[in-house]
Design a binder for these strands. Structure first.
Lengths: 197, 197, 197, 197
DNA sequence: CATGAATGAGTTTTCATTCAT
DNA sequence: TATGAATGAAAACTCATTCAT
């Protein structure tokens, strides 16, 4: 019975997850409006109606997805930086975290990039955005105070580093570059030289 | 008759142009599937049926739009580089060209970025992509032969420089950065340091 | 065991009753098609599946409800008339019974009125209708034989008296009239004058 | 060309009318929630999408329908009363107007009756209701001032007379009574006796 | 050529009903 | 027996496309 209940619960738990997973992949591939709810349900292996037991609407679904992945991404980036390490090492770790995240969840990176500032994102999603941006800006400002990073607007640092990273990811996805440790290391050096003093 | 035909053609050109213009703005704002043909027609100031006189279908419209702007963008970037100028100067001009293009046609940049590799783009659009990429790659390779740019895959150079540029553009659009000559110059320096030897 | 069965039955009865109660209110408020089975279950305080233990389908539920209330209504009207009383007194009692019933079960009156001759009512519901109508027609015919009520089709007498009554009930529900003993007495007089010789 | 344009326009005009007509019949038969938009479109002889060119939503459709018929009904009742005629004659005319209206538009009467105070009716529909009620109340009050009608709340007079009328109409629809001039005259007399001094 | 009303295929969403627990 | 999560058929509504004018 315990086993049976466990299976039951696992099923329950999995359903929401399966829907989010399927939605992430499809939204990343075809965009929000280019994806139908039955397609999401199909790929998640559930009935179309089931999607609506877990999410009020298709919009609620993208928003939940956006918030979950944005938060996860933020955690992945800043959660494990060693404040004792050298600045260059910290930057390396930061870049490494992005790389690991993108390797593990390539659809999530595509999804987040494609839905950045989309008009159907709600207040909560935008707040979530801010919550991720905040610590990164602080981190940059700290490095700037220590004359390690160029004295330019922190948002420009972010735009350049993350922009370059996304550029690499897209080129790899398009087959123009290999998505390999070597590629990422080379790109990391370029990014570092872009912003360091 | 010549005069009449000229007037006639001008009208034709204007309508087609108005439709492309409206479509660019709307596709950039809401995406391909999020935009309706009547909306495009409305904003272009023509009847919905008229769109179909100039473009076979909504897909044909995005593709025409993509090809026109991609070509235009390629022309803007590479068309006016002075081979006699210093490498740094050439990079400056290149960046300047991107900046001018983005200042003049911000919706076009958003549109191209959002529809990059979209599944509804046809063969011709992809070819167009290649045709723009080719000269840039050659330009980079030339610079690398002369030990001016780091010896890394040319596509990585492109990914980093264009990625950084798009990052700046998006940050400006989101209100995080000013879209000003100063911002662009600062960013240009960073981009240059990222790739220079 | 008898005790256990009694408790068991009481539970059964209560649940069935709770469902009928909830359904009556909701069907009266929003109509048959405007009411969902889960809503009924919710208001009855049972699970949605439970409704289907007691009623084969939503249609079976309305029909059971219609039959129960129609029968109840018929019983209330004719069950307690004193054949010895004066005709006027009998009419008074009849009207009084309607009034008492409507006071005690306003939703039932609304429900019956709204679902009168609805296409989803089955044979049995229609028979039930007849069974209620029969004694009233006889009662009217008897009064007509005694030259107390106008010699018009008994169904017209019913239509006028019950129509007027329902009119009053609706006006009261809409806030145009007070639902009070005085109102009902005044209306009774009017109704009587409408049909008396 | 004039003829052609006229045909074109007639078609246009008819389409809205055909939809309202079909909707009236179906809403009266099966209720608002029991009727589907494609059914309405089908019976109106237009495509399902066309309904939405003329009415924003199904709710907007019922409301438009309600307002049109309520207004029409009000006009039919009060529009042609001769103030010079005797009170009894005026009542006769009033009743006659109801009868004529119900004969000409039986579905409209059923529709109005069934949707009276429905929760999906909007503010404007309720105002419309009031606008029809007002003149009738005044008319009754005037008769009461002249001691022709019983000194009871005007809304009670309305409830009784209209209630009786609706009762007759329903009985006729159910096959219990003939819908004939004779039936209506008999009922008129009853209604008059119900309210006259 | 230009139009925009009309359409039906395709979306999003709801809900009666079932069934594993 | 009671439950409520799951479902898919069906409803409301949208929109790319056509075609009569």
């Amino acid at each position: 019975m315990t086993e049976a209940k466990a299976r039951y619960n696992r099923q329950i738990v999995d359903k929401r997850g399966a829907i989010l997973d399927a939605a992430c992949r499809l939204f990343a591939e075809r965009g929000f409006h280019g994806t139908t709810v039955p397609e999401v349900a199909d790929r998640a292996g559930v009935g179309a109606g089931t999607v609506y037991r877990y999410f009020e609407s298709k919009e609620a679904l993208v928003n939940a997805l956006y918030q979950e992945w944005k938060t996860e991404f933020g955690r992945a980036l800043m959660g494990k930086l060693d404040p004792q390490a050298s600045p260059r090492r910290q930057f390396h770790d930061f870049w490494q975290h992005m790389a690991e995240f993108a390797t593990k969840h390539p659809e999530a990176v595509s999804f987040l990039e494609l839905h950045h500032h989309a008009p159907y994102l709600d207040e909560k999603s935008r707040e979530c955005e801010e919550k991720v941006r905040g610590p990164i800006v602080s981190f940059i400002e700290d490095m700037q105070r220590r004359d390690i990073i160029k004295p330019i607007p922190p948002d420009m640092v972010m735009a350049i580093v993350y922009g370059a990273f996304v550029g690499i990811a897209k080129a790899a996805q398009g087959g123009y570059l290999q998505w390999s440790a070597e590629t990422l290391e080379t790109a990391e050096n370029c990014a570092w030289e872009a912003i360091r003093m």
